[in-house]
């Protein structure tokens, strides 16, 4: 077996080493492109006190929402968390902490974290509650706030296709935060719908190069739809 072969054969193996109180960065937007089986495995493991960095927190009974059921999440770093009743209940009861972060800042925090940049200035959030306690600096007459980047003990990612070396391609808007999360985990785990031999994917089409990926697992996915909207055909 090649030293570049990232494939693991069980979800137990995929998430080995995850411990209480760790930080996990998760890809996905709403329920689109979420690593649903890796999330389910964290539920099975019962790991507690987690800080989860993810744009959203799933819905009741699906996605990251399942980790609320046994109170496994201590803190969420997200841009929008309005989709689950259990989240609201635990937040109001003080059992859950939430750090609301503008969506673009959240994406950039992951990108910068994965790229070795500890912090960056952005105009987003200046003059708002998000700026509280943050350094402000003026560039060319405009005010910017200093935002610190994020890295995680683990990153959990949903891809479409990958080769055994962990080169990953995402499908349509299921890409979203996934390639950013993939760069920002000390250990990055990617679950995909199809694994092919190295050489089968076009090198220039790879979204996440294998260097970022530690473990790769083949999964089957429910892909639940949050807002089913259609037009009449014809």
């Amino acid at each position: 077996m090649s030293g570049f072969d990232k494939v693991v054969n069980s979800y137990e193996e995929a998430l080995a080493g995850l411990e209480d109180n760790m930080t996990v960065i998760a890809g996905g937007f709403g329920l689109c492109g979420i690593p649903e089986n890796l999330i389910q495995q964290i539920k099975v493991m019962g790991t507690k006190g987690l800080t989860i960095v993810s744009n959203n927190c799933g819905v009741d009974g699906f996605g990251l929402g399942v980790l609320l059921e046994d109170k496994q999440i201590r803190k969420m770093i997200s841009s929008y968390v309005g989709e689950n009743a259990m989240f609201e209940k635990q937040l109001l009861a003080g059992e859950l902490e939430v750090e609301l972060t503008p969506q673009g800042t959240l994406a950039e925090k992951m990108r910068a974290g994965g790229a070795g940049i500890p912090a960056f200035y952005t105009a987003t959030g200046f003059g708002t509650p998000v700026a509280e306690g943050k350094e402000v600096r003026e560039f060319n007459g405009r005010s910017y706030i200093l935002e610190e980047s994020i890295t995680g003990d683990f990153a959990i990612v949903k891809g479409w296709k990958a080769d055994r070396y962990g080169n990953v391609i995402y499908r349509d808007t299921a890409q979203n935060f996934n390639p950013l999360a993939a760069t920002a985990g000390k250990i990055t785990i990617v679950e995909v719908e199809e694994i092919v031999e190295p050489g089968k994917l076009q090198p220039a089409q790879i979204h996440t190069p294998g260097i970022y990926v530690d473990r790769l697992i083949l999964g089957t996915f429910e892909k639940r739809i949050e807002q089913r909207t259609v037009r009449q055909s014809g």
Binding site: F29, A107, D172, T173, Q175, L180, K223, I225, T229, V230
Partner: peptide, 25 residues
């Protein structure tokens, strides 16, 4: 309908001719 194709309101959508798709960053 495709679960991998949604808009920022989390509604299922399609891509227009000449569309591009990319990461959140």
């Amino acid at each position: 309908i495709d679960a991998d194709m949604i808009n920022a309101g989390k509604q299922t959508v399609t891509a227009a001719t000449g569309a591009s798709i990319f990461s959140s960053a």
